[in-house]
Design a protein around this nucleic acid. Structure first.
Lengths: 161, 161
DNA sequence: TTTGATAATGAAAATCATTTTCAATAAATT
DNA sequence: AATTTATTGAAAATGATTTTCATTATCAAA
């Protein structure tokens, strides 16, 4: 509810307008939170951060906004299998760019990496080409994730022996 | 509830015993369903198939059993982001072996592929090695998924223009 | 700038997949 | 066959997310 959001226009305004979405305070605040955050936040994480400064913004709106932003492509949604979805800004000046994940199966820590080895990027292009032809499938994106144990969890296990 | 399962012992019996799990009828039936199925079934899918022949087996047991089987490694669980988990036999004579997925973002169809191009397998070994060292992370598994539009959905879109 | 149409919001209720509880039952060991 | 204890099913509980609906704010037009 209420008022206008303090700071000036943002780079995503045009993005919202393009999709004929109104530029509202909750949307601005939620995008601000996302753009100041390097981690993958759940809807509730976003809500809590938003709530500190703007207690009037409800959880429902956070969900609705995250869905909207995902649909128009400003945000990417990940499911890491712990029951709650995570969201991350996908484009714009603060964007992270394409990256892959390391997921610790013990503590659920997620490490992003985008320092691909040279062959990695080249090969994905090639794989996508081969697969599109073989399966008549138009590939638009890919997801790569490595599962295992992070250093901390490994040492915990060591100690308990 | 009730009775004993008709057919003789199965290859997974030893697997269950190893983990001191009892070999019960619901478990046998659920494993039979999974081993006769090439698709990725949701818990409810499994329940419905099981229910046809054994209406006494409840949905709760299906969930519990799928969790158990996942824990002992007989089953792999996937989250494709549509809100329900999918399960698939991971080992044994009928097993599928490691594979990757093509996911249609329109109709949610999932295509499995395991006819990797030569470089693909080689490269993943290499990437895993580099990452384990760089991030001090012990990699045990990986997940690769390509998103896009399957042929049918593409032609639907064509027609609607 | 004010106005008006309508998109967006918040609170509460509804959903939906999955988990927990608990008393009854069946599997394995004796 | 008897005993122990894991497993089961039904119903209730949970937790994330969505829907409903009356109210409010945004933006385009006057």
């Amino acid at each position: 509810m209420s008022g206008r959001y303090g700071r000036g226009p943002r780079w995503w305004d045009s993005n919202l307008r393009k999709h004929s979405c109104r530029i509202t305070m909750p949307r601005q605040v939620i995008l601000d939170v996302l753009s100041n955050e390097e981690q993958h936040l759940s809807a509730e994480d976003v809500f809590l951060k938003v709530h500190k400064k703007y207690p009037d913004i409800g959880l429902t709106t956070v969900y609705r906004t995250l869905n909207l932003l995902t649909q128009i492509g400003l945000v990417v949604r990940f499911d890491f299998g712990d029951g709650k979805a995570r969201y991350e800004l996908s484009s714009g000046p603060e964007k992270k760019g394409h990256h892959h994940h390391l997921v610790c199966t013990k503590c659920n820590r997620i490490i992003d990496y985008d320092d691909f080895i040279e062959e990695e990027e080249k090969l994905f292009g090639k794989i996508e080409k081969v697969l599109s032809e073989k399966y008549d499938f138009e590939i638009t994106d890919h997801l790569v994730r490595f599962y295992g144990l992070c250093e901390e969890c490994r040492s915990e296990i060591q100690e308990s022996l």
